[in-house]
Each structure stands twice: as structure tokens, then as C-alpha cells.
């Protein structure tokens, strides 16, 4: 049985108390994307400022996070902002994929009895984000952890459009 300490790791609480890259960016040139968790009311706003270039080679020059929510959603957003700032879109997508794999997100698994497919989690890419691994043991909270990442995903699409 998973205990609260598995969920509320010290580093998560630290990011919750002192969120990094909190604030806003001027739009334009930055883009602003909102994400909602309709179940619990958590809201995340992701501001993205991309560098020059084309497509996935563009660099996330700056990122700011707004919104409100629980410790898991807010700390996940804070860690996310640190992990993708200065990275290219392609690199950010890699990290996103690894994070979602760690969260055991497998689309369209209809049969409860089927073994979950093993998706490789690239721990090198995750770094500090590893601390979020305990969330998987609390399935209702996975949506809290992934809210900011889904919002980033949407924000990247909007920024590239």
C-alpha cells in the first residue's frame, strides 16, 4: 500500500511552496494557453516564447506558469518549466513522452486484464521529474500531474501554428 510519503516527496513540496518560472509573458510575442482539469477545478496557464527557426528546431527561450491547483499539479508545472526551458521543441517533446510514459499513460487500453505495454522511461531526460513517479500509485492524481504537460503540448501546437 502506497503511503503519503510516496506521493508528497520533499522536492514536490519544495516546488509547490516555491514555484519556479511563475508569472506571465507579454502576448504577443509569447503565446498563452490555458488548461483545465474539469474534475477538480485545477487551472494551468502556460506562456511560451519560442526562438527563431523552423518547426521542432525552435528553442523554448522562455516559459512562465500561471493558474492554481493542488501541490501535484503546481509542482509538476514548476518542474516542467525548468526541464523544457532552453530546449528545442523536439527535445521538449521527448521529455514529455518520457514523463507520460512514467505516468503510465497508455491510450485506448480497453481490457483491464491485458498487461500494460512497457514503454521505456528515459530517466536521463527526466532528472528531478523522477520525484513524480510516486503519483502513479495514486491513479486519481495522475491527471493532476499531467495537466501542465498537456497544456504545454497544446501551447507548442499553438505557438508553431
Amino acid at each position: 500500500m502506497a503511503g503519503l510519503e510516496d506521493l508528497y516527496r520533499e522536492i514536490i513540496i519544495d516546488h509547490y511552496r516555491s514555484p519556479r518560472n511563475r508569472g506571465e509573458l507579454d502576448t504577443p510575442p509569447a503565446t498563452r494557453t490555458e488548461g483545465f482539469n474539469p474534475l477538480c477545478g485545477d487551472e494551468i496557464v502556460v506562456y511560451l516564447q519560442l526562438g527563431e527557426g523552423t518547426g521542432d528546431e525552435r528553442v523554448i527561450e522562455d516559459i512562465r506558469i500561471g493558474g492554481q491547483g493542488c501541490s501535484i499539479s503546481q509542482s509538476s508545472a514548476s518542474m516542467m518549466s525548468m526541464s523544457v526551458k532552453g530546449k528545442t521543441i523536439a527535445e521538449a517533446r521527448d521529455i514529455m513522452r518520457s514523463f507520460k510514459a512514467m505516468m503510465s499513460i497508455h491510450e485506448s487500453s480497453l481490457d483491464d486484464s491485458v498487461e500494460e505495454p512497457e514503454i521505456e522511461v528515459d530517466e536521463m531526460k527526466l532528472g528531478e521529474l523522477e520525484a513524480m513517479r510516486g503519483v502513479v500509485k495514486f491513479p486519481v492524481r495522475i491527471k493532476c500531474a499531467t495537466l501542465s504537460w498537456n497544456t504545454l503540448d497544446q501551447g507548442i501546437s499553438e505557438a508553431l501554428a
Binding site: G3, Y8, D42, G69, C70, S71, Q74, R141
Partner: peptide, 11 residues
């Protein structure tokens, strides 16, 4: 946060 609160209460 209420979400965190209810998690501890569930415990």
C-alpha cells in the same frame, strides 16, 4: 489545497 487535503483524509 483541497485536493491534497482530501488525499490525507483518505489515508
Amino acid at each position: 489545497h483541497p485536493h491534497d487535503l482530501s488525499q490525507v483524509l483518505d489515508e
